[in-house]
Amino acid sequence: MSELIRCANVCKDYVRGAESIRVLRNVDLSVEDGAFVALMGPSGSGKTTLLNLIGGLDSPTSGEIEVDGLRLDAVSARCLARWRAGSVGFVFQFYNLMPVLTAERNVELPLLLTGLSRSERRRNAALALDIVGLVDRGRHKPGELSGGQQQRVAIARALVSDPRLLVCDEPTGDLDRETADEILALLQTLNRDLGKTIVMVTHDPRAADHAVVTLHMDKGKLVAPVHRADAGSEDARSVA
């Protein structure tokens, strides 16, 4: 397996008024292509900050972040936006769908940044909705869907541009147990069958159980990883 994500000595500070707060402290991380990693830790441990850096939503204060061969810490915001459009899909806790657009238009949204024709965009959006089992709800707006269905639409949106990496921030945090299990099973399927690399932040140990590797963070630092060979991958995907 090749390395997809590499973080070297990454620090992140936030400035609040006159105070500078170090959220990440010299984080080193390597995630192989096709891994399913859960990031756990108490509130304020820095897991969402690390996820944002890996997803190219934020820049480190120091250190290097390389994803799929691109040094995210060394490129412009514009270049980073282009990279996000094609290389990474995002799933949020509160779905973050456009309430004014139907499910299929929400899924199609990232494709507006591609050179695909309208019919190609619609076909791809329908395919992504089919993968998440919602092809029959494409004409519904988010407000007309349940929480689980909205999260499926969000996953379809994350998938539609066929990125290698999915970053998920508490994807089941707003769902009941049964629906959460369905979403986690879907993520497992995407990892196992489509080979998507998934980095997921969660508070929930049962959600983390669906990942192959669980990383724990505390006070801005990574602690030793836990490998779970039975979590959906026959070959143990590694995190260093």
Partner: peptide, 12 residues
Amino acid sequence: ELAVMKTLGFSD
């Protein structure tokens, strides 16, 4: 929503 658009890759 605008932040999500930027997340998806829409430029500033």
